[in-house]
Structures are given as C-alpha cells and as structure tokens.
C-alpha cells in the first residue's frame, strides 16, 4: 500500500510528501521505485519472458527519450522486432553467456561519466566526453536488419550518427588503414569479464573504407530512447552488413592503425570467425550453416541474403576479394 502510494502521483487526497520530509520522500520514492521496478522486472523476466516482451511500458519508466531525431532513407521498411525482444535477447558476454543474462546483469554498468579515447594515426587525437559525442552530428533513426552469426535476426530502429562524421573530425593520416574499437574492461561493472570465456577487453575492427561507409553508424539509442545497457550503452558500433559480433558495444577507445589487429572472436576461434565477418549465406560457419536465418517472431526460417541484404550498397568494397578465404 505504502509502495503503491509512493509510486503513484496524486493517487490520494493526502500526498505522501505532506507526511514525509520532501527530500527524504523523494530519495526514498526513487529508491523504492527503482528497487520495486527492478525486482518486478527481473521476476517477471525470469518467470515469464513473454510478459515483458510485449509490455514496453514495464521498462520505459527508467529510460530517457532522445529528441530531434531525423529519419533516414537508409532505413528498411520491414516490420520491427518488438522492443521487449530487442532488449532481453542479447549476446553481450561481458554480462554472461546466456542471452537473458545481459538484461539481468547490465544494471551494474555505469554510463556516466563516460569518455571515448580517439587516438592513433590521426591529426586530432582527443578524449571525447559521451555528452559531446551525442552532439557531434545530428541524430538519425536507422532501421537496420541485424543478423547474428548464430542464425537468428532482428530488425532494430537504432538512433545514432554516421561513424564517418567522427572520422572526418579527427582527420586520419595517410597511415590510417584500419580502425580498432575497444569495449570497457572493468570486471566490477561487467561481471562476465571475471570468466575467461573471451580475451578481455573485447576488441573489434574495420577497414577504413568500411568505417567511412554511410551505413556504418555509432548508435546511442534504439526505439527513440537512450540505449539500454544490455544493448551496448552508452555508445556502440552498428555495421548492418556484418554479423552482429562486429558491432562492438560500450566503446571506450577508437584507435586508427596501419595494420589490422585480431578481434576477440578471431582469437577465440581463428577457423570460425574472420576479420570481415560479412554476412554470407554461401560461406558456412564450420559448425553450422549460414544459408538461412530465423527472424525473431517468425516461424519459418528465411533465406539469408549476401551482405545481409545490403549488397547493392557495400559489395563494391569487396570486389576481387575471395570471400571464401576472407570470411
């Protein structure tokens, strides 16, 4: 009863704030609210994931809206995967290897203060504060397909800006051939890093022309809101023509380099994961087929498209490259 009163504004004639000192009331209200919501969400998620899936409202209380978002011609018109699926079914090994673990554990990630070091072969190295990055370029909605290397896919309305906007600002030198991205490494915030399942920190890379491609974005939100922690807050890469693991999350460092470095998954399984990791139905993962995928929410599998359906835009970059060797 008390909790209910504290949670609902103007619920009765007597305001809880009239009984309790305003400041204590506010902080208590915030605490109880967060605690109740968090435990309710976790309990609901554990007992019945279906419930959370369809009730965006259950989680939206704690997230922030982003404003002044432009639409983009690069967005797909396909039906979008429900918010509840996008935010509860995640591969983010920093918070555990089961797909529901990031949503359960990622609350320990602190996204403020947050800085991103941009360094290496550039004329203007700089440590960006996340709030500066958020204003670096106009935010756009990019509705993209996401294809996981495991054989499932989603359609996600990301909010972000072209990676090229950042690259142009820092002025790469002629030696900048590749970009290496690094995720935060802090086992206190990312409990999954206490296990040695991958080499930490998580590292990914792009060739500079790939990074400059208009489809490649730095995402800071989805569904019009600030990125939930389990989706890679506060800032992540999204490269929709590559398998999902290339789209590195919770970035703290962007380094411009002359020679490519091995990514985390390449180190974990050199025969299974390559540097390019372009979605390709013709090149199977050594242990499973990549010819088809299950779009979340659909029953029948659908054919996987070369470059995840973005071949018209990106295939040119790989002309002459043997995609069987450079998978």
């Amino acid at each position: 009863m008390i909790i209910k009163k504290l949670l609902t504004r103007n619920s009765g004639l007597i305001q809880p704030s009239e009984i309790t000192d305003q400041k204590i009331y506010l902080s208590r209200r915030k605490f109880i609210g967060t605690a109740t919501r968090a435990s309710a969400a976790i309990a609901a998620g554990m007992v019945m994931p279906g419930l959370l899936r369809n009730s965006h409202a259950a989680t939206s209380l704690s997230v922030k809206k982003l404003s002044n978002i432009r639409k983009s011609a690069l967005s797909t018109q396909e039906p979008q995967t429900p918010y509840g699926d996008v935010t509860i079914y995640n591969n983010f090994y920093e918070f555990g290897t089961d797909k529901d673990q990031p949503a359960q554990h990622a609350h320990s990630l602190k996204t403020r203060p947050w800085t991103v070091v941009v360094e290496g072969e550039i004329k203007r190295p700089k440590t960006y504060d996340i709030d500066t990055l958020l204003k670096l370029a106009p935010l756009e909605e990019r509705i993209y397909r996401l294809r996981c290397v495991e054989g499932w896919s989603m359609v996600i309305p990301w909010i972000g800006f072209p990676l090229s906007a950042l690259i142009k600002q820092v002025e790469p030198t002629a030696n900048a051939k590749f970009i290496e991205f690094t995720t935060l490494h802090d086992p206190k915030q990312m409990p999954g890093q206490r296990s040695g399942v991958l080499e930490w920190p998580y590292v990914e890379g792009l060739r500079i022309d790939e990074a400059m491609h208009p489809l490649a974005i730095l995402a800071v939100g989805l569904y019009g809101e600030v990125l939930p922690n389990q989706n890679g807050a506060p800032i992540r890469l999204v490269v929709p023509w590559k398998y999902g693991f290339k789209s590195i999350k919770s970035i703290v460092k962007i380094r411009f380099i002359e020679k490519a470095t091995a990514s985390s998954w390449m180190k974990a399984g050199p025969h299974e994961y390559g540097y390019f990791a372009n979605v390709n139905p013709a090149v199977d993962h050594p242990r499973w087929s990549q010819a088809k995928e299950r779009r979340i929410g659909e029953f029948l599998k659908r054919d996987t498209l070369p470059f995840n359906g973005y071949a018209d835009q990106v295939a040119d970059m790989y002309a002459g490259l043997d995609l069987n060797r450079f998978f």
């Binding site: 007992v47 019945m48 994931p49 279906g50 419930l51 899936r53 699926d85 509860i88 079914y89 797909k99 529901d100 499932w152 299950r294 979340i296 029953f299």
Partner: peptide, 11 residues
C-alpha cells in the same frame, strides 16, 4: 500456451 517460451521459442 501462455506465450512464455521467450524471444526464440524454437531454440
């Protein structure tokens, strides 16, 4: 029956 098989029911 209660729509609780999660995001990827077949998996």
């Amino acid at each position: 029956l209660h729509n609780q098989l999660g995001t990827n029911p077949i998996e």
